[in-house]
Design a protein around this nucleic acid. Sequence first.
DNA 1: TTTTTTTAATGAACACTGTTCATTACTTTT
DNA 2: AAAAGTAATGAACAGTGTTCATTAAAAAAA
Lengths: 204, 204
Amino acid sequence: MGIIERKERERQEVRSLILEAAQQAFIEDGYEKASIRAIADRVEYSPATIYLYFKDKSEIFFAVHELGFEKLIYQMSEAVEGIKNPIERLRQQGYAYMKFALENPAMYDLMFIQNAPMEAIFENEEWVCGHRCFEIICDEVQQCIDSKLIKITVLEVATMSIWSFMHGLVSLKIRNRFKTFPQEHIQNLMSASVEQMIALLQND
Amino acid sequence: MGIIERKERERQEVRSLILEAAQQAFIEDGYEKASIRAIADRVEYSPATIYLYFKDKSEIFFAVHELGFEKLIYQMSEAVEGIKNPIERLRQQGYAYMKFALENPAMYDLMFIQNAPMEAIFENEEWVCGHRCFEIICDEVQQCIDSKLIKITVLEVATMSIWSFMHGLVSLKIRNRFKTFPQEHIQNLMSASVEQMIALLQND
DNA sequence: TTTTTTTAATGAACACTGTTCATTACTTTT
DNA sequence: AAAAGTAATGAACAGTGTTCATTAAAAAAA
């Protein structure tokens, strides 16, 4: 009997319809303003129906934030494709990260700033997509270490430093804290900071 | 007639009572859960009364975030007191920043992560406390540049880089994104990252 | 085919939220 | 003592996430 299989297929279809609607609503209005009712409206279901497919709002946006990671990981991989020099790979990966954040601020918000998606991770569960993304950064850093191109030698320290720097840069920008810099120079200053950081990292 | 002066004094008193309650509620429950009604309860006023003293919730928490800046600025200033070496001053200021963030995560949230306080700044208005805090960081960086102790020579680039790095470090921690590192080493890795960054910055 | 059982979807409600406004209570001025 | 001005509030509005008894539809059993 293929009925239970078809049912499961239909279930997954509805699920991803809701997810798509949630993603759209979230990108347009942000986490707080993307209400369950608004998402339900988009898929033409009752709000209560949403809860047959997701435990709560956190869980919906955990699923959405996973879509974000897919996209980020893809764009970072694409950015280093065909490049040999490890430093150049790291640079391009960094710019891809920055580009993603500035072009999809709402998504980045969900992935690295909002509490909600983390709350959806149950005890003793892993943050799988976070780890995957983290690892592809690690890989590039490891390459730089192995080829003795950067000054830092401890992988964890290097990765934490570089990631923190990049996250700080884009999240202060996204959250409007760079008002302290002359408005018209912010973009240039951000690029200059990235270049400066790479220069500092590099062995001479 | 000192009556209007007494009235003004009383008004300011009520205002700061509300502020204190808001701060407390916020520290305990975070921005979203710190409701106007909860704040009103704390000061034993009606919710509507709050709106005689503040335009909206954003404005309340803008005022609270200013209190946070006072504290942070004080603690950063205290941390460098009596220290001569510019690099050591920068290091201690950095650790003071980190300590503040980790000890007052809710406050830090309001100051550097939440959107709300920024929304309370009207068009063409300045983020005064942000600028003040930014300047005392700038001062230390400038000292390092002047005494040729660090490799970066452009003040804006240096400050943006250092601040972004520190903000990234503490905000990823606060928002639980360091799950990607072994739980028990996170604190050590964060300190090691700070030390590593100072080492990279320094001229040899 | 008809009846029973299982599954899916919903309307209505609950307990909240930020915010507004007409009404009341109190002070100051006339 | 009456009038004017100010401060505080109760009640309401429109919204939120979430739950649950009830209804509609589909599948299984008779």
